[in-house]
């Protein structure tokens, strides 16, 4: 550090100091991603193989008392559940950090104002606060989702108790929606931190927003792609992501009813009579709809994230604004 080598005039090195200031968070995130990735690799490799072998032994056994490695089956199932929830927790982890530490604490303690009175505009400062974390979050969460998908796929057709593709935790931990949700959590946290209510309320707001958004995505998910319909003479069963089910009347009309199935309670029998039921129908998404659903939901969450980003920039611009500037 000498005066003899002045930095060449150019862009301020905002990113270098972002990394320095959030080094503990970056190390923690790296540790989390590395650990969960390691466990997922273990899950998809040795654990899946052991569980599959145990299932093979169990399925081949005709005797009343069978010898098979039950511990291996349970281990795969337990580790699968833990890692699935670890992957699903990523958006909340990111949102909490972004709300509390990324902008909230800086605004609260005044260091944001310190940064804004260097040779950097608040908008550039905010852009640097979003860009690198967004890349790190995308890379980390993306890796986890990919490895989770591989670990889940490793059990397909081999492990009888493997979660179906439409089991909600599996569905989300297996696809890019979680990455988009993590980015939404990041931006929501950064925006909440700018609102000058303190870092703790910002943390709570970011967590709440991410939770609500996820709930909204779950509600919307079945309707994000055209559904398939199965009409049967038998009560509806079968896999796939359910949308709706009910009875088919003599005229071929569908009457939605999620409770009756093939129940023969008085209420249900009355219903069948009233509509002259001749069969059942079930609206659902088959496995082939997995990617369309995932990608549509991801696109929607990313669009919302972009909107939030715009909102945050506008807020900051208005607050610190250059009214007479070129932009609006």
């Amino acid at each position: 550090m000498t005066a003899l080598t002045p930095p060449a005039p150019g862009a301020p090195h905002l990113t270098r100091w972002l990394i320095r200031l959030h080094r503990p968070a970056l190390l923690f995130w790296t540790a989390v991603v590395v650990t969960v990735s390691g466990v997922l690799l273990w899950l998809g490799g040795p654990l899946a193989d052991a569980s599959a072998a145990a299932w093979r032994a169990y399925d081949a056994c005709q005797a009343s008392a069978c010898r098979y490695d039950q511990a291996a089956i349970l281990r795969y199932k337990d580790v699968y559940t833990y890692t699935t929830y670890a992957v699903l927790a990523a958006p909340f982890l990111v949102a909490a950090w972004a709300g509390a530490a990324l902008t909230g604490r800086e605004v609260e303690t005044g260091t944001a104002r310190l940064a804004w009175t260097q040779s950097t505009s608040p908008l550039r400062w905010f852009a640097s606060r979003l860009a690198l974390p967004a890349a790190v979050v995308t890379a980390g969460t993306g890796l986890l989702v990919l490895l989770h998908h591989l670990a889940w796929s490793a059990g397909r057709g081999r492990i009888d108790t493997l979660e179906s593709w439409y089991d909600p935790p599996t569905f989300y931990a297996n696809g890019p929606v979680v990455v988009a949700l993590a980015l939404a959590g990041l931006v929501a946290g950064a925006l909440a931190g700018l609102l000058r209510r303190g870092s703790l309320p910002a943390l709570a707001a970011a967590l709440g927003f991410t939770g609500l958004l996820w709930y909204g995505v779950q509600q919307a998910m079945p309707h994000l792609w055209t559904k398939a319909t199965a009409v049967t003479g038998l009560p509806p069963t079968g896999g796939g992501l359910g949308v709706d089910e009910g009875i088919v009347t003599a005229t071929g009309a569908h009457v939605s009813n999620l409770t009756c199935g093939n129940s023969e309670t008085d209420d249900c029998l009355a219903l069948y009579d009233k509509f002259d039921a001749v069969g059942w129908y079930r609206d659902y998404h088959p496995a082939s709809h997995y990617w369309p659903l995932q990608l549509t939901a991801t696109a929607l969450v990313l669009a919302l994230t972009a909107l939030l980003t715009l909102l945050a920039f506008r807020l900051l611009h208005r607050e610190t604004g250059l009214r007479t500037g070129r932009s609006t």
Partner: peptide
């Protein structure tokens, strides 16, 4: 102080 130099390129008098 090093951050001051990085955030004020071209102006900083270390």
């Amino acid at each position: 102080l090093r951050m001051g130099g990085d955030l004020n390129p071209g102006r900083w008098d270390a």
